[in-house]
């Protein structure tokens, strides 16, 4: 049985007015229920255009997209029963307080009581009594997150959701996304924070100059990405054995210490280490940044 994609974008294209340049060019992406999809790219690459097309704030020049099987243009109202949205430049009514604003949106959503709203506000430590115009950017962003999640949508479309949040609140946001994911919610989010993408997304698409230039599963990236190990042996470094391991590159070796760069599965390395007396081993965290920068800067074909 095939799972119906939560979001299915097909050849979506957008040209603004009489501009000769396409803001989005032939984008095709499919996102399954329970999947968190990271949408990356430099400023002006077409991330927000894609999101605003999905929300039907913009009209596509060509192509189609469906959310939960509904067409984004024809069935826009029906779609919004099940979609939570957070804008990149989230704007509020400055004179309303959080409670009034969320009550207003809750009435529009028709999602019943405010108990879940209050629970979310408690978790995010959001101030619902202060006028929104007096809140800091981070505190306003909390209100934005609450309004996106308050009706427990099946699809979340988030444009840089953690911007302005402090690390503790980022952590709480990741937990909320993880909980939504467990319930089968599909999440489509743009972000500039690569560590965040690596942590919560299952797949990423990289967009540049309106085109999708790369799409990868995070687990594959992790397994493909090079990791660095500093290993200290009790006696001499078994260089010839290490060199024979698939994916290993010796960076440097001094006396009993060696630094290696390794791609792929680690089992080969540990098999060699098990045969020797190892006094210390240190691994450096994975850093996907270089790879994303490669996509950002170079013209890459879709992979």
């Amino acid at each position: 049985m095939t799972i119906q994609a939560a979001i299915k974008i097909e050849a979506l294209t957008k040209r603004y007015g009489a501009s000769t340049k396409l803001a989005l060019d032939d984008l095709s992406v499919s996102i399954n229920p329970g999947e968190v999809y990271g949408f990356l790219g430099p400023n002006g690459a077409g991330k927000s255009t894609t999101i605003r097309l999905l929300m039907n704030f913009l009209q596509p020049t060509r192509g189609t997209a469906k959310i939960l099987g509904y067409d984004i243009v024809k069935d826009s109202v029906a779609i919004k029963q099940s979609v939570g949205y957070l804008a990149g430049d989230f704007s509020v009514y400055p004179k309303m307080n959080g409670k009034q604003y969320l009550q207003y949106l809750n009435e529009l959503q028709g999602s019943g009581g405010m108990s879940y709203v209050n629970a979310l506000a408690k978790r995010l430590n959001a101030d619902l009594d202060k006028p929104l115009g007096e809140l800091s950017r981070g505190n306003r962003q909390k209100i934005g997150i609450i309004q996106a999640l308050m009706h427990q949508p099946k699809v979340l479309i988030l444009d840089e959701p953690t911007s302005g949040l402090d690390p503790l609140m980022q952590e709480e946001f990741y937990k909320l996304i993880n909980e939504a994911k467990q319930l089968g919610t599909a999440v489509f989010m743009s972000s500039h924070i690569l560590s965040e993408v690596q942590r919560i997304c299952s797949r990423v698409g990289i967009v540049r100059e309106g085109k999708l230039v790369g799409e990868r599963v995070i687990a594959d990236l992790v397994s493909e990405a090079a990791q660095t190990f500093n290993i200290t042996f009790a006696d001499t470094v078994p260089l010839s054995e290490l060199k024979r391991i698939k994916g290993v590159k010796i960076q440097n070796s001094h006396g009993s210490t060696v630094t290696i760069h390794m791609k792929g599965k680690l089992s080969g390395l540990f098999a060699v280490l098990a045969k020797h007396d190892v006094s210390a081993i240190a691994a450096r965290n994975l850093d996907l940044e270089e790879m994303f920068i490669h996509f950002y800067q170079n013209k890459g074909a879709r992979q």
Binding site: M55, N56, F57, S76, V77, A78, K80, Q81, V83, Y85, A87, D89, S91, V92, Y93, L105, L108, Q109, G110, Q147
Partner: peptide, 14 residues
Amino acid sequence: QNKTIESLLARPIS
């Protein structure tokens, strides 16, 4: 102008 229209149109209202 204030971009608050997005919060409204993100709800099920035509």
